[in-house]
Design a protein around this nucleic acid. Structure first.
Lengths: 190, 190, 190, 190
DNA sequence: AATGAATGAGCGTTCATTCAT
DNA sequence: GATGAATGAACGCTCATTCAT
């Protein structure tokens, strides 16, 4: 599926690429996308040139970070959806996506922007997740676990918003949990 | 209130300052804080030099924008709190703050960062709002309109999160309304 | 005519702009267009930012250099054409254009490319010169001073080529003169 | 001749070297010397490393391209000089050199720079051609086919200039021919 | 007080060259 | 010998900030 079409990289090149993605994920997440590319390269123990060999523009690096995250989410969501019954799966996936997208404005924007001026790879990844979420939502609603009037756009908006909310409370896990309680209760039919 | 200590500006200087704030608010909100200062100055019909006379750094301008917004919120919140009974006042203020902070990451960050490395004027403004919200929350809880286990940090986090969520749905007011329904229902005691 | 539409620059700004053009002309001519912009700015006693304020891209600077040169040529050509009789005017202008374009590949290319992917200002300047040369050529041919089978494209090609030829001989004015003799004799009817 | 001192290359290495030269000639000629080395290597079906094994710097590659071209010219010139009588040989060689150097600023500069900061191999090649041209010129002058006052430097300058001129007219062979007529007529004694 | 020209550190990106594989 | 990943100096350009006018 993902990236299977490119020729296999040499072992060290693959390692460097992965290292760059890891560092970029970390740096973009914690300090925003304004961080100089050179700093990311050096944090990965590499020169700028190497970064640009792997990702032709800074934007491409950003996109790769987001796509990787989206693919992770997709995979775990599929697993959760297969293993649990509708209501449980729905809420577990909600948490999963919130947790995975925490701290990533880039990501949340990607999830939400849904189709507007998005690059192909992002487009594809978000489409898949949106389909998964739509499925989960529908099943949960049929099972009577979620209000019927909530649609996919509202669900996504709530996920993004809950992500933002929980980010405010990273220092207090119990408070963070209370946010989920409020939102989940609000999602259930009265 | 804030800024009462500076000498009164000449009429035209005051007008310029206000114009700059208006333009900056508009521009930062719609296009992000990356917009060049020169562009803001020109959109206000002024030169860059004048902008920097009024606001010694770009950050100071940003701060002034946020502070003005916070002061507006403070005033309206006080009014609402005085006019309505606890439950109604609480939810109305929740909406108010969400609406006023919509689109302003700067603002939400300011509200949430609450005390960490914040400039004095921001500190002051947020402290006031936090106090108001604490008051409203407490009254609403005593009136039985809001779950008891929700504290001020959770409330603020939910406000910020709801702001993010509703921003995703600017094109669909009905969906936007459903977000409030979910969050408000979730806040009420079962 | 040229540049009359822009607002008048402040005296010092105009001086800086002129200085930049002078330096750029000199540097591009002697060392090619590969010279870093920063070097040009510093050679003019200015910072890079100033250069880019006056000329938004390096290419724009190059174009301005060329246009200024073309305008000089146009003016002098008009003067020569008015003052002398056809044959004399033709050969004098030939020399003039060769001398003025000496060392400027940029220029010669501009003159020759005539219309392909050329910026508006260049287009305009070259069009004027081409018209002048066509006029001079036609008059000289009617006066029996120049072979009839030579057209404007050949004339321009010969001007460009003679420029290249004389550049090889900057150290020996007499030899340079012999180039003109050969070309001029070749242009006359046998 | 040139390069006779290196050890003979393995067959494949020799093939690669030739392929690189062919590709570089084509690419430099049509797109200028700014083309990245990596692109040349790949166009030759090789890696950059291989290119740099054969030519230690980009400049060395450029030089090799020019030298090969010069050697071709030398060989053909010798042949022409041997086969035809002075006047005919002179003009035929003039054409030959012009045609062969067309499109190659690099080349013309090499021919003209004659001795200044030129690498040994170029030095050698240009010296040979210069000698050939001097010979042809002298013979043609003695045969009364070329003006006496024209020296070798002027001849070379005219060749270079004629090359530049004809390049302007690649689209119109008849016009191109007229350039030669003008120059050749100009070269003849009156 | 207002202006906008000048500044230069800093950014994203390129490419000749080196060297581990 | 061949490869192409890695390197980093260098470039064109931006923009917050200063200061002469």
């Amino acid at each position: 599926m993902s990236g299977a079409s490119e020729r296999p990289l040499r072992a060290d090149a693959a390692r460097n690429r992965a290292k760059l993605l890891d560092v970029a994920t970390q740096v973009f997440t914690t300090r925003g996308i304004g961080v100089p590319t050179e700093e990311i390269a050096h944090a990965a123990g590499l020169g700028v040139g190497t970064l640009f060999r792997h990702f032709p523009t800074k934007e491409a690096l950003l996109e790769a970070v987001v796509v990787r995250r989206l693919e992770t989410i997709t995979a775990r969501t599929a697993q959760l959806a297969a293993e649990a019954e509708p209501a449980e799966a729905f809420f577990a996936c909600f948490r999963l996506v919130v947790d995975q997208s925490a701290g990533k404005e880039e990501f949340t924007r990607a999830l939400a922007a849904a189709g507007v001026d998005m690059h192909a790879s992002l487009q594809e990844s978000t489409t898949v997740i949106r389909a998964q979420l739509a499925e989960l939502l529908s099943a949960a609603q049929q099972a009577g676990a979620v209000r019927c009037e909530v649609g996919l756009p509202e669900l996504i908006a709530l996920i993004v918003g809950t992500g933002t909310a929980t980010e405010q409370l990273t220092a207090d896990p119990a408070a963070r949990e209370r946010i989920f309680e409020v939102v989940f209760d609000g999602l259930r039919p009265r």
